[in-house]
């Protein structure tokens, strides 16, 4: 069975490594990037992943800018799940307006993330 490719964009190394570990364990092929610049490079250099999980606050490029880039520059409808810290509702709304498919608020439950990822991939 072909593994689904997942791009995880998270600047917190500890959290990202933990989430990567959990996602990998669940059968996803996870690529990790830590800032917006790396996200752009990754998307331009590689084929688009099946799903993107991105933190809303990242260096160089925010999660909202990432959605804008994917939707308008790459003209892709690939599912994007946003991770935002609690009390950041305005950014979440902006993310949805730009075309985010789902969102998770910090503190994150890895089990919940898995369910959301699976659900978004099943929709496609």
């Amino acid at each position: 069975m072909v593994k689904k490719r997942l791009l995880l964009a998270e600047d917190d190394e500890l959290l990202s490594s933990l989430l990567k570990f959990r996602l990998k364990k669940s059968g996803y092929d996870v690529d990790l990037v830590v800032n917006g610049k790396e996200v752009k490079e990754y998307l331009n250099a590689n084929n688009l992943p099946d799903i993107i999980v991105s933190d809303i606050m990242m260096p160089y490029m925010s999660g909202i800018e990432l959605i804008d880039y994917v939707r308008n520059q790459l003209n892709s409808k690939l599912p994007i799940i946003i991770i935002s810290s609690a009390g950041n509702e305005e950014n979440v709304l902006s993310a949805f307006e730009m075309g985010a498919n789902d969102f998770l608020s910090k503190p994150v439950s890895p089990s919940e993330l898995l369910i959301r990822v699976a659900r978004e991939l099943n929709k496609v």
Partner: peptide
């Protein structure tokens, strides 16, 4: 420190 930091970002069963 690692565990304390992670505890701030995690919830649920993992926490």
């Amino acid at each position: 420190e690692v565990l304390v930091e992670l505890s701030q970002d995690l919830s649920g069963e993992t926490l």
